[in-house]
Design a protein around this nucleic acid. Structure first.
Length: 434
RNA sequence: GUGGGUAUAGCUCAGUUGGUUAGAGCGCCAGAUUGUGGCUCUGGAGGUCGGGGGUUCGAAUCCCCUUACUCACCCCA
């Protein structure tokens, strides 16, 4: 095999499209329900946009960007959706004419990481963003919508974890407190954690080394460092979550990897997925609009990864019931002499709004009917010399085997009748599953 | 970036201590059935055994290198 898809990128083949369409339609329906409008920023942005928004010392910027240079400019394939959406928001002038915008986008993101289960270099995300307000009900609205997305797909048992990162000053004071907490025992920490101590001390608390976990007992919690205002915001989020019946876990260990996050952050986990259990991550980014040249406006959003979601659907056996509908009619030639007339009927039926296909491999009638049956078509229309002579067509209902002759002129109508009779009895999704 | 595993037909996989023309199931094509499918039977096509080098009379099998895939760590969707 000479050519393969680029490492970490894969083809979504026709067999998988129904599952993808289901994710997309579920996302769009939810967005409509809550008044979020679709926006489609370009896949390529100036590299500096991501450095500025995601943060210079993050993994994404340091080593995961797909960057191309052209004529003194540096462009980067978007590694996440929020930066581009906020850039578009500012550029479109929404900040002045209609500051509160609820937006969503669905599309590919790119990160140069080593691929593994649930992680690809090109992956698709569903992003929802509410820009222009600090209302804690928006935090909760988004958490609720994210959870609802999975529930509508049939995925239960998700765990919602929330935390607050405070704002810049809160975080500075907290970071200092953690540094003081760790420093006396630094020599006893794992090598990994000692490196993190320098680079990003908060990650020390995230360590999975047994010894580190022990040492981290009793570490300061960021929630104790929140300003009154940020504490009130966090408590309001919890209160609203309770009032709509969403149970969540407050997890002081969540520390998101992008610099722009502030205040509320959350993740949705599917515990059975193992190492890569987070299906959704999000939170507030209350300074990003200003950072990108707009006024100081608060915002909150999340991203759901399709890759992990599809994995879970697969595991739960929920993706097998999905199959695309084949065109209802297969027009078969009883004799090669009728091929022209078969093609004419196919086009005629399509003109009448009936999906129709024909054999173009020179199969004999028996093989054509076999193909019609296994191909998932509902009706076979058979044309042979006898039918041509009598201006008729044989219609065979493929799942019952019953067959009758109808006038050629009335073929479309007769087929419509058969489909209506079939369709009325069958529930949606009858095909594919069984 | 670090560490482990795996590479044989379109797919899922066998291949015995290295031994002659590398197999099976599914799928595909055809015939039995010269105008009627889903079952059955018969036959067929399809493989530089990931690539390169080495050991050997002889390598899919042993050794080295390489590439790809995959899993985990890190981090994240």
């Amino acid at each position: 095999m000479d050519y393969r898809a680029v490492r970490g990128m894969r083809d979504v083949l026709p067999e998988e499209i129904p599952a993808w369409e289901r994710l997309e339609s579920t996302a769009r329906r939810l967005a409509d329900l809550a008044g979020y409008r679709e926006v489609r920023p370009p896949l390529l942005e100036e590299t500096d946009l991501f450095i500025r928004s995601v943060g210079e010392v993050t993994d994404i910027v340091e080593k995961e960007m797909f960057t191309v240079r052209k004529a003194d400019h540096s462009f980067t394939l978007r590694p996440e959706g929020t930066a581009g959406i906020v850039r578009a928001y500012v550029q479109a002038g929404y900040a002045k004419r209609a500051p509160l915008q609820k937006l969503f986008t669905i599309g590919p993101m790119f990160r140069y990481e080593k691929p593994q289960k649930g992680r690809e270099r090109q992956f698709t995300q569903f992003d929802m963003e509410a820009i222009g307000s600090l209302d804690p009900r928006l935090d909760v609205e988004l958490i609720d919508l994210a959870a609802r997305f999975f529930e509508e797909l049939g995925i239960r048992g998700l765990e919602v974890r929330i935390n607050s990162m405070g704002d810049g000053e809160d975080r500075d004071r907290y970071r200092e407190a953690v540094r003081e907490f760790v420093r006396p025992n630094l020599a006893r920490y794992s090598e990994e954690s000692r490196a993190r101590f320098e680079r990003n001390v908060l990650r020390v608390l995230d360590s999975k080394h047994p010894g580190d976990v022990e040492l981290n007992q009793g570490a300061p919690r960021i929630l104790d460092f929140l300003s009154d205002e940020n504490r009130a915001h966090f408590e309001a989020v919890e209160r609203h979550l309770r009032s709509i019946g969403r149970t969540v876990v407050v997890d002081p260990g969540i520390v998101r990897g992008l610099d722009y996050y502030t205040r509320t952050i959350f993740e949705l986990h599917y515990p059975d997925l193992g190492a890569r259990s987070a299906l959704c991550g999000g939170g507030r980014y209350d300074h990003l609009v200003e950072e990108l040249g707009g006024p100081d406006l608060a915002a909150v959003g999340f991203a759901i990864g399709f890759t992990g979601t599809l994995l879970v659907l697969e595991e739960l056996g929920l993706s097998e019931a999905l199959a695309a509908d084949a065109p209802p009619v297969y027009v078969a030639a009883a004799d090669p002499a009728c091929d022209d007339e078969v093609f004419r009927l196919v086009c005629e039926l399509r003109g009448a709004g009936l999906g129709a296909v024909f054999d173009s491999a020179g199969k004999k009638l028996g093989k054509q009917l076999k193909a019609a049956g296994t191909g998932g078509h509902a009706v076979a229309a058979i044309l042979g010399p006898d039918e041509l002579a009598g201006s008729t067509v044989q219609l065979k209902v493929l799942d019952t085997g019953e067959q009758r002759s109808v006038p050629r002129d009335g073929a479309a109508e007769a087929i419509r009748g058969i489909l209506a009779a079939r369709g009325s009895g069958a529930a949606s999704g009858e095909r594919g599953g069984a």
